[in-house]
Design a protein around this nucleic acid. Structure first.
Lengths: 219, 219, 219, 219
DNA sequence: AATGAATGAGGGTTCATTCAT
DNA sequence: AATGAATGAACCCTCATTCAT
């Protein structure tokens, strides 16, 4: 058995709580209470809170990066050398997110929380863990994205990529909140799927926009 | 006197620390130590940590919204009924940010940290405080943005607005980190001004993109 | 007021418990329970457990080294250049111990526990704190000891000094235990003063012994 | 088979770790990790941590007391009624220590750590275990020591014996630390054998010193 | 004979807040 | 107006032991 029952319960409870409240805000006591498990069990099974976070992270990042990998290969085979379009690439990204979310309904939030965390300056360890583990696997996808974006310098692409990531992370991270606001304002129920879809043309246009007009300067 | 010397010292120290570390991560001990002030002084002058946060928030949001207000009026007067272009609007937004940052060099970070916080579900009080205070003042700006974006439903606009906000918030919030990565990767020094400028065409294109092509569905 | 009432209570309780049980074995919860004080008070007043230990250490080491200092000066004045005898020096040392023990009846045990701790390899911080603070003050005493001992190399003296220290530390450290054994065996009540006195000729003879006969070698 | 393979592995690992770090400081996790054995195995084979300590103790004390026993008998046979000199007795003690250290290179440290522990007041069980087991076996040696020391009362001898034990225990117990200090100070490498040799004349002189001059009294 | 899993008790530390002056 | 002192709650982590298999 790969994982004991207790470890599984911890992992599940942690996943839900991390997704809902964030990693730092979630305490080991909350997790073990929710999991009906002794406080020390986390340290026993995962070594530390950080270890649990990494374990939970892996649980999600692996299927995500695998999905993208696989989907990319399949799509390339069909295209026979023709290039994928940018919107299609972004669509594929969204599908990957939805796919893992289906298997594990905290996946989307976990994804964003992880990225949030990974950009905190205190979390160098996690950042390197993620990059070391998944950075290379996602490289082909990034490369394709680069090709299909507007022509630009490397550093410009670097920043645009993070603008786009910011959109996704912020939106998903605050999805519950935003969905609630929408419900109050427009009396309509937001579906995560629809929102992700809405992003595609926006992000795509952003990546393809021509840049370089300098409109303002300090003062 | 609106504010005692002690309260001023606290406010200043808090501003710097909040900007650098975030609200939750900053402790009252750090603030009072930095301010050379007694630990209890925060509670005395601001009631609670939350009260201090709101006070600091105000300190920044007021000049920001005033700047936009004023700049918009000036620009409209010149245009005499002709419409402002979207990129110009976004440029104006960026200039507002840089302007307050000049008067108070923590302003940019504070802006983003505040918005981050405002979207946390535990922070309903702050959220309502900000919306109640500044929501109406920024309304004209939002309206203009709406007009200059692609034609779309109200709810679509709502979401796109947040996609864009996400880009700005994420980028500024993680600016230190991202700048450091850029320095390592490209050996170039990021300037906040240049990065904000880089955003304009990207965000503009995003808001003007035509939407509605449904590429994917769940499963 | 140099020290608050709570800080005093903590210091006193800590002193008693440290003396009785040792530093590591004594927990902060024991101390604060005994002192009728909140657990957090130790960290408030002393920063950390280690800080409390250092504070307690100082409380004792200062009068001890001061006493030796003073007594040495007085004695030298009387002798007018004539040399002190070794036994007298050791006697002076014992008197210093008894003196501080009179003012603070945990002093003797504290002395030994501190030296025990100072020689642990994990306690480099404390070791340097003590040496930096009192090493130089005790130097004249050590120098005299050297002069009155048998002629020997520097390194030989170094080791003999520690043989002697070992006697003192071990005896005081286990005094309660040893006294109890004596009571059972000889039905006599040990007094610390008498025991210290018993040490003088023994230690003195040890320091003055002629060395250098090599009786054995590792097979 | 007296002891299973697992028990042997535990014993060996425990010995090394106890010697290096002390009994209390060494955790069961460390031991079982080092021994490549399950955590529960200690309790299974030795009942408790205390049981393991006693087992390890025996492992060492037996050859030690046997060696002294044997050497004493051999020496007496040669002397044919003539008395052994004190230095020779102490030399024999040191040789016994070095002898067991040769067969088991943690023996010296174990010896001292055990004696340290045995004098802690919480360790009555261990103390009685050791005394009951080896007290009588070492009696002849102690008797000889008594004869060759200066004439003195029983209780004086009792205390002097512990002064001497203190020297040995303290020195060996902190040998690593002291050797390091010596290396820094004199740039010379201490050898355990040489240090033990250095002790002989010092301890011998101490045991033979004439006592009884009362130099001081409590103020 | 052996072990993976689990646990209750307790470790030191940190937090925002409140009290008494 | 201001502050030193004090506190209860909560933090993560580690320990030796025991249970079920």
């Amino acid at each position: 058995m790969a994982q004991s029952k207790t470890a599984k319960q911890i992992q599940d409870a942690a996943e839900a709580l991390f997704a809902e409240q964030g990693f730092i805000e979630t305490t080991m006591r909350q997790i073990t209470r929710e999991a009906n498990v002794n406080l020390a069990a986390i340290n026993y099974h995962f070594g530390s809170k950080q270890g649990l976070i990494q374990s939970v992270a892996e649980q999600f990042l692996k299927p995500f990066s695998d999905y993208i990998d696989r989907a990319l290969i399949e799509r390339m085979a069909v295209l026979e050398g023709a290039s994928v379009q940018l919107e299609e690439l972004l669509e594929l990204l969204m599908r990957a997110l939805l796919h893992v979310d289906q298997e594990n309904n905290h996946a989307l939030l976990m994804f964003t929380r992880l990225l949030e965390l990974a950009y905190m300056k205190t979390q160098e360890e996690l950042r390197e863990f993620i990059l070391g583990r998944y950075g290379s696997k996602l490289a082909p996808f990034i490369d394709l994205l680069r090709k299909e974006s507007a022509m630009m310098e490397e550093d410009e692409f670097f920043w645009r990529l993070h603008f786009v990531m910011g959109s996704v992370i912020f939106t998903l991270s605050n999805f519950t909140m935003l969905a609630e606001i929408e419900r109050k304002k427009f009396n309509s129920e937001a579906e995560i799927e629809r929102i992700l879809h809405r992003m595609v043309p926006v992000l795509s246009a952003g990546m393809q926009a021509r840049g370089d007009k300098l409109y303002f300067s300090r003062i």
